[in-house]
Computed example of a mutant assay.
Amino acid sequence: MKLTFSTPILAFAFFLLAATISSCVVLSPKKYKALLAKQDSLNTGWTESQLTAENLNNTIAKLKRDTADLNGQLADLHARYTEMDGNYAKLRSNSSSAINKLSEDLKKREQRLKEVEEILRKRDEATNQLKEKLQQALLGFTKNGLTVEIKNGKVYVSLMDKLLFPSGSIVIDEKGKQALAQLAKVLKEQPEINIAVEGHTDSQKINNLGQIKDNWDLSVLRSTSVVRFLTEIEKVESVRMTATGKGEFQPLAPNTSAESRSKNRRIEIVLSPKLDELYDLIKQ
């Protein structure tokens, strides 16, 4: 609010001046000087009052501006607080949802892990049972170079070449057929088992074996001879069979002596459980 002053002081000054003028003939110089001094004092007071009023008006205007600024800042802070409060509420809601989802995912993974562990346990149990059955069925051939063992969850039936083939031949002899027939009885009772027949040789070069060019040929032809006997004669399902030749490149012993080389010349029948159930579970 702007400060203003009434004019009594100014009127009084004019009155004194008029009185002085009208009675100048009777005023003494001393009184006249006193009146002039009083007039100067009144003028000075008036000027100071005007300056004070102006300063007060400026102060009031500044206070109004400051109050408006503070009100704006307060409104801005209130808006930011409202926004932050909303964001916090949203974040808390989202966090709860994320935690719940994570908890559900963990439960599903734990359940899937338990199912995988159970499948693997059953696989290991079945593999051990298969090994025992094979050892019992092929017990009479262990002295002729037949072994049964488990490696990496698979059953390996290893037959030295002397148990199956005459030297340098790919034709199975009678002793070999007997061993494979016993093996086939167990395989036909285990339809969930996949069968891979691998042919292996030593590192000696092939000489005078007709169209058999090298150890690759010999290992492949011997493995296919075993597969044909098991499928065509013993009626093991062909869809379960695989024939491969490894040549001389996966030896069991160094090819430095006749005994070591005889260990390397072998047929390995690798039996592995079908893991379709496990694969389907992993894909989920």
Rank of each mutant, 00 (worst) to 15 (best):
L3H: 11
S6D: 14
P8Q: 12
I9Q: 08
F14M: 12
A18V: 12
S23W: 07
S28A: 13
S28I: 00
S28R: 05
K31L: 09
K31Q: 03
Y32L: 15
K33Q: 10
A34M: 05
Q39A: 02
D40P: 00
S41T: 09
L42I: 14
W46E: 00
T47N: 12
T47K: 13
E48L: 13
E54K: 15
L56T: 11
I60R: 14
I60L: 11
L63Y: 03
K64N: 08
D66F: 07
Q73V: 09
D76M: 12
M84A: 15
N87H: 10
Y88N: 04
A89P: 02
S93K: 01
K108A: 15
K108N: 14
L120I: 11
R123Q: 11
D124A: 09
E125Y: 11
N128M: 08
E132S: 12
K133L: 08
L134E: 00
Q135T: 11
A137K: 15
L138Y: 12
T142R: 15
N144G: 15
I150F: 12
N152M: 06
V157N: 01
S158Y: 04
G168I: 04
S169Y: 08
D173F: 10
E174D: 13
A181D: 10
A184E: 10
P191N: 13
P191V: 07
P191F: 04
E192F: 06
I193N: 01
N194R: 13
N194A: 10
E198Y: 04
G199I: 04
G199H: 04
N208R: 12
N208G: 06
Q211M: 11
L218P: 05
V220Y: 07
L221F: 12
S223T: 00
S225Q: 03
F229L: 06
L230S: 02
T231W: 11
I233S: 15
V236F: 01
V236D: 02
R240H: 04
A243L: 04
A243C: 07
K246N: 09
E248M: 08
P254T: 07
N255I: 02
T256G: 10
R266E: 01
P273H: 08
E277P: 02
L278N: 03
D280A: 10
I282S: 01
I282L: 14
Q284W: 00
